[in-house]
Simulated scan of single mutants.
Amino acid sequence: MIVKRVKTGIPGMDEILYGGIPERNVVLLSGGPGTGKTIFSQQYLWYGLQHGEPGIYVALEEHPVQVRRNMLQFGWDVRKYEKKGMFAIIDAFTGGIGEAAKREKYVVRDPTDVHMLIDVIKEAIRDTGAKRGAVDSVSTLYLTKPVVARSVVMNLKRVLSGLGVTSILVSQVSATERGFGGPGVEHAADGIIRMDLDEYDGELYRSLIVWKMRGTKHDMRRHPFDITDKGIIVYYDKVLRIRGGRAYIEPLPEKVVKEMEEAAKKTEDVFGEEEE
């Protein structure tokens, strides 16, 4: 069966995913504070824009002005793509309050109203022709009512996947929580990528692991990553192992690395098309 994939464009990530995220998948990007979830989602959108794929970003925890500033720190100037109609930031943070908010095109007047949010998302997708999407963070929508977590994710999934958007839903968890940010959300999402920042023997280590990804084989090891001034770099050829309370970063066997590289290479030159 031919699987149409969407490359993340994050160095090392597509090797772990054996070529990319299956098209229309909704991926839960879960992790604690400071793990790099927002950067990951924005880098994913930026790569798409650089290759002609429109996108939308739903801002639930930051002012759209701040989102643009933060992206610009990595050299990701999305304003030109907004002017071209290829990119849209959906303001689900301000409720339309403030002078800057009045200049935003897509505003959710009541950020707590999921149905209103979905209507604005639909409008933005149709206007831009978006193929990529990010919601940051989806857990904001059910923080005070965790019982509705699964239904919120399912509602977003129906809209995003139904309109052909391959999406990342950022999910916040506490620093010590090992779950995915809400009861039942792991079953509603097509994929789960867990990002962590853990202390071992007095040092902090960044790592990620793909817990699941429907429609594709993926590597099941925990890989270290760094956040640089150009974004995230994942070391797909290395693994983070814990022994006796200490962390060790070790190289993977050459055979395993080659298998991941070959799988990712299949989609290297067929952006937005079916893999061979």
Rank of each mutant, 00 (worst) to 15 (best):
G179Q: 09
E203S: 10
S161T: 08
K217N: 14
L208I: 12
G215P: 14
I168S: 04
T166D: 13
I192T: 06
G215K: 02
T216G: 07
R178Y: 07
T176Q: 10
L208P: 00
L163V: 09
K212G: 04
L204G: 02
I192Q: 08
M195E: 01
M220G: 03
D190G: 15
R158W: 12
H187V: 06
G202E: 01
I193V: 11
Q172A: 10
S167D: 10
L197H: 04
V159H: 10
A188N: 04
P183N: 14
S174I: 10
R222D: 00
K157T: 03
D219N: 09
V159A: 11
D198F: 01
Y205P: 00
I209V: 12
K217R: 15
F180W: 14
M213I: 06
L208V: 02
R221K: 13
Q172M: 07
T166I: 13
A175T: 07
G182S: 03
V159P: 09
Y205C: 00
R194K: 09
M195L: 15
R222W: 02
Y205I: 01
K157G: 08
R178I: 06
L160S: 12
M213E: 09
I168F: 15
G191V: 05
G202F: 01
V210A: 08
M195N: 01
H218F: 14
G181N: 05
E199S: 10
W211L: 12
D201I: 05
G164K: 10
H223S: 08
G202Q: 04
T166P: 12
R206W: 02
P224C: 09
G215V: 15
S171R: 07
L208M: 02
V170W: 13
S174M: 03
S161N: 08
R158G: 15
E186Q: 13
K157L: 06
M220L: 15
G215Y: 06
V210F: 00
G179N: 14
G164Y: 06
P183W: 11
V159N: 01
Y200R: 05
H187Y: 09
E186F: 07
M213V: 06
K217S: 05
V210L: 05
G184D: 05
G184M: 14
H223C: 14
H218W: 13
L197V: 04
L169M: 15
R178E: 10
E203C: 05
G181T: 01
I193C: 01
L169N: 04
K217P: 08
L169H: 11
W211T: 07
T216E: 13
S167K: 08
Q172L: 07
W211Y: 11
G181E: 01
I209Y: 00
L208N: 00
T166Y: 08
R221C: 12
M213W: 03
K212Q: 04
G215H: 12
G164W: 06
D201N: 03
M220V: 11
T166C: 15
R158N: 07
D201A: 11
S171E: 12
R194S: 03
P224L: 03
T166Q: 13
V173G: 00
G179F: 03
M220R: 11
A189D: 01
V185S: 03
Y205N: 00
W211G: 04
A188W: 05
V165W: 03
E203F: 02
H187E: 09
A175D: 09
G184A: 06
V165G: 04
V173I: 13
G182K: 00
M220A: 08
R214T: 09
G215Q: 09
S207R: 00
T216F: 08
L208R: 00
P183T: 12
K212H: 08
